[in-house]
Design a protein around this nucleic acid. Structure first.
Length: 462
RNA sequence: UCCAGCGUAGCUCAGUGGUAGAGCGGUCGGCUGUUAACCGAUUGGUCGUAGGUUCGAAUCCUACCGCUGGAGCCA
């Protein structure tokens, strides 16, 4: 029995092959005088394998009715192509139609808009663009593990169902098995979640950071890579309610080491995609974003800019630029401010650090000035924030004080505070939005187009 | 959630108060080692949904839904 060859491997042959088995989906078919050309794609490559189906095939009449989208298995000889445009083609000895298609198949061989393809998310991976996007997604996910494993990090699976409801990272989705039509109630009429499945309120995680801190306090260098859920009603091209996040956490590491790692990682991932996904990046550069390759190369070649929040504010104030929103100390940087820094002023990724404590979450380490915390945001041109992180507050009393300032009860975070009680250590980490990284690497401008099946407000089909 | 724009054939779009259109796709035929093939014919519609104004609405008004861009929140 002949084992199947992928289209990619078939196209990469260096010599003719007498017998070969390929399988995949028909992209298009053209008739010639006494044979048909079939373009076969199996997702292993952007390129198609040209099949020659002669009229001597016993099922030639059926083959001639093959339409885009049908699945077939072909056995035949790989020979040098007589035509231009491809080195190899497969002359079919046997062509089996596995699954027919019909004229209602929505994908045409001509270009479709990403918006239309989004409506047929189950079929869009069969398009050139989305085939490329998801091959890059796979490669990048692998590269992330490779990056950390090469550096002695351990991969931690933090829980997806969590009891922490106050991580300062947005709205949460409640997880419950309570019957919504007849919930158990407390005497005051409110729903009694102590009688819910876990004996308490639970939610889908918005971050694995707190749990990762526990593991960094044992295995020293760890990272998480998993799905994250935010119930924010965000309607933008950069937000999804379910997305994947990478969160390294390192013991005995300060903000400096944290920024170094973030920068090194972003460069590593770009360099990897540049080397391992040439075909795909070529397609993006041609059809999605003409500047893509030069921008990626620029990012790989140069050190990122690093400035404090205070310096950023001063630069923005001196810029002479008319911003819609005010530039003031202790106000968050607006999208337009971040844009100006990365796209106009520095023209490269910028890490902004040491933010006022007022505008950052409770767990970030307080600086000696008593005004700023060791936060850092890595901003990239075109997308904005791609990494957000900090050195964590490792001093018990300072952390408790911070919690109280945020109206949190330290008693509710006993286990988290225990990490400061027993063998506390300076430690740091950050979160990298996987989809945002993919957007940067591919040039695709809508987050819905780098996730297989996007979850966004009002939209969870498929 | 806020602001703006859009929603017409399977797709991309034209049509701004008076008979619903084009290109592509599909189908049929022709030609052809073709490759986003070519030539001819043909098929194709609840004009997002629901109300309203009008003799008459794709077109004007209202509400809702969805999409796009921007903003907020963030990754």
């Amino acid at each position: 029995m002949l084992s199947p060859t992928s289209v990619k491997d078939a196209l990469n042959q260096t010599a003719p092959v007498e017998q070969m088995l390929v399988q995949g989906w028909v992209r298009t078919r053209r008739d010639s005088k006494d044979f048909s050309f079939i373009e076969l794609n199996d997702g292993s490559s952007l390129r198609n394998l040209q099949i020659i189906a002669r009229d001597s095939l016993p099922n030639y009449a059926t083959v001639q009715r093959l339409i885009t989208g049908a699945s077939i298995i072909v056995r035949g000889a790989l020979v040098a192509s007589q035509g231009k445009g491809q080195n190899w083609e497969l002359v079919a000895d046997e062509l089996t139609i596995v699954g027919a298609s019909d004229e209602s198949y929505p994908l045409q061989k001509k270009g479709h808009t990403p918006e239309f393809l989004r409506e047929i998310a189950h079929l869009r991976p069969r398009s050139n663009l989305f085939g490329c996007v998801f091959r890059v997604r796979s490669r990048l996910a692998f590269a992330i593990h490779q990056f950390f494993q090469e550096r002695g990090f351990y991969y931690i699976h933090t829980p997806i169902i969590t009891g922490s409801d106050c991580e300062g990272a947005g709205e949460l989705f409640r997880v419950t098995s309570i019957d919504a039509t007849n919930p158990p109630r407390k005497p005051d009429g409110s729903i009694d979640y102590t009688r819910d499945f876990f004996g308490r309120s639970t939610y889908l995680t918005v971050s694995g950071q707190l749990e990762a801190e526990a593991f960094a306090s044992a295995l020293t260098k760890v990272y998480t890579f998993g799905p994250t859920f935010r119930a924010e009603n965000s309607n933008t091209s950069r937000h999804a309610n379910e997305f994947w996040m990478i969160e390294p956490e390192m013991a005995f590491t300060d903000l400096q080491g944290n920024m170094d790692l973030a920068e090194e990682m972003v460069k590593y991932l770009i360099r990897d995609a540049r080397e391992k996904c040439r075909e795909e990046l070529g397609l993006f550069a041609k059809f999605v974003d003409k500047e893509l390759l030069s921008r990626l190369d620029f990012v790989i070649d140069r050190p990122f800019q690093r400035i404090t929040y205070t310096e950023a504010i001063e630069l923005l104030k001196k810029s002479g630029e008319k911003f819609e929103f005010p530039v003031e100390y202790e106000l968050n940087l607006q999208s337009e401010h971040e844009r100006w820094l990365t796209e106009k002023h520095f023209k490269c990724p910028v890490t902004v650090f040491n933010y006022p404590k007022k505008i950052k979450p409770f767990y970030m380490r307080l600086n000696d000035d008593n005004k700023t915390v060791t936060a850092m945001d890595l901003l990239v041109p075109g997308i904005g924030e791609i990494v957000g992180g900090s050195q964590r507050e490792e001093r018990l009393e300072v952390l408790e004080e911070s919690m109280r300032r945020y109206k949190m009860d330290p008693k509710d975070y006993k286990w988290y505070l225990d990490l400061r009680r027993y063998g506390t250590v300076p430690h740091s980490g950050f979160g990298l939005g996987f989809e945002r990284m993919l957007m940067f690497v591919t040039g695709v401008s809508n987050i819905r187009d780098v996730i297989p099946f996007a979850r966004t407000p009002g939209s969870a089909e498929f």
